[in-house]
Amino acid sequence: MKLSDRTKKPTPKFFKVLRTIGLTIAGIGGTLVAAPVALPAIVTTIAGYFTVAGGVLSGVSQLTVSDDERALKDEK
């Protein structure tokens, strides 16, 4: 399946929830990394990991599709 075909298919509900969680984690990590105050090095390091993990989680969740016809009817 091509990437363009995959992006046109619907995402299952479970992965929509995971995508939202991933975006939230990435947002929190990005906010901590870009904080205007000096934070301890461990906090900045963990925030960097949060940003990467949240981005990967949301990216993988966005490209997960359902080929099950029954699941597609439930989405509508």
Rank of each mutant, 00 (worst) to 15 (best):
K9M: 15
P10M: 02
T11Y: 00
T11I: 14
P12W: 03
P12T: 05
P12A: 15
F14Q: 04
F15D: 08
K16R: 11
K16I: 01
V17I: 08
L18H: 02
L18R: 03
R19K: 14
R19E: 05
T20Y: 09
T20Q: 11
T20K: 07
T20G: 06
I21R: 06
I21F: 14
G22W: 08
G22H: 05
L23S: 10
L23M: 10
T24G: 14
T24A: 06
T24Y: 14
I25D: 01
I25E: 00
A26K: 05
A26F: 09
G27A: 12
I28H: 01
I28M: 07
G30C: 05
G30A: 08
G30E: 01
G30K: 13
G30H: 14
G30W: 04
T31A: 09
T31V: 13
T31K: 01
L32V: 15
L32E: 11
L32N: 14
V33M: 10
A34K: 13
A35G: 07
P36S: 11
V37Y: 15
V37D: 13
L39M: 12
L39R: 05
P40W: 07
P40V: 00
P40S: 10
P40I: 00
A41D: 09
A41N: 02
A41K: 10
A41E: 11
V43H: 08
V43G: 00
T44N: 06
T45R: 15
I46M: 07
I46H: 01
I46L: 08
I46S: 01
I46F: 10
I46R: 02
A47M: 02
G48P: 10
G48H: 07
G48R: 04
Y49W: 12
F50E: 11
T51S: 01
T51Y: 06
V52C: 13
A53Q: 06
A53N: 03
G54I: 04
G54N: 01
G55Q: 04
G55P: 04
V56N: 06
L57E: 12
L57C: 10
G59Q: 15
G59K: 06
V60Y: 11
V60A: 09
Q62P: 01
Q62L: 14
L63P: 11
L63H: 14
T64P: 06
V65W: 01
V65M: 05
S66N: 08
S66V: 04
S66G: 09
D68C: 12
D68Q: 15
D68I: 15
E69A: 13
R70P: 03
R70G: 06
A71T: 12
A71M: 10
A71H: 02
A71L: 12
L72M: 11
K73Y: 11
K73N: 09
E75G: 06
E75V: 04
